[in-house]
Amino acid sequence: MSSAASPLVEARDLVKHFPLRGSGGLAVRSVDGVTLEIGRAEVLGLVGESGCGKSTLARLIINQIRPDRGEVIMDGRDLLAMKPGELRRFRRTVQLIFQDPVAALDPRMRLIDSLMAPLAAHDAGTREECLEMIHAMLGEVGIDAGIVERYPGQCSGGQLQRIVIARALLLRPQFVVCDEPTSSLDASIRAQILNLLNDLRRRFDLSLLMISHDLRALRHICDRVAVMYLGRIVEMAPVEQIFHAPRHPYTKALNAASLLDEIGLDAAGRLVQGEPPSPVRPPPGCHFHPRCPLADEKCRHHVPALEKIAENHEVSCHHWRRSDS
């Protein structure tokens, strides 16, 4: 099945609701019918505010949690139908990079032991071979090999994030999920890490899913961006389209929020009202309608479909043709 043309990851109609105990059947509707594809060596950005389900979606895609409905096809194989042994081999090809490198590393383990752990778990070779692989990878991420004898507490956040990236790449994965990899870092360090990820993805032909709440951080590294709001994808397009010709009012608001200096507070404030509602009781119809300046009767009752409006550009809005928001 796996040919160069088929996407690496295909998620179809994924749904995940987390029931609230003692609530009489209420549930947090984290992911509510998401379909997307990630191509080989493609970087897809996933942007949205806290609680919109972006991290849950990522965990569904790598089979860390099981969906209530839907399927995930990775490299032509159905992830949800995999047997344990097969799943274990699959896990080697998928890795995760988290927001806080301090929390991602055991404070009582030397960095070298943290780096060694995934290699040992997957029987990657003798200790000498593993050390050699680690040293080569440290070179790739721009870390001085001497540092690995230290404990996490003795390193800076930027150094630790490089270690976490090195650890994720040691097993030569095809697909890496980066969950807010730079949001806990300072501006000067954030730029270093974004450059590094960009460089590594080219050298290792990686497919990446880059999760962020900040559109600006995605611009440098992504080929396409999916915008998520309360469990649904509302717009998906090549990155420059998202920045220059966004169609969904929510994408426009996110865009303005990241360009406060150019757009000004008043204009940015007018594009969206209020705050994201709870994913326990999402509004009927279009989830965005209570905050949308374009909302009308139709939006309050009918869920807009994710409509293909151009090659590679999908949007879920009844009023995407209007340009007045």
């Binding site: 800076s156 730029a191 900040d214 440098h220 420059e240």
Partner: peptide, 24 residues
Amino acid sequence: KALIDCSLMRTAGGGDLESIPGTI
């Protein structure tokens, strides 16, 4: 100057971001 250059404010896509070498 370096802080403004690496702030993601005025950067178009593609190419490397400006960054400040070293750590704080």
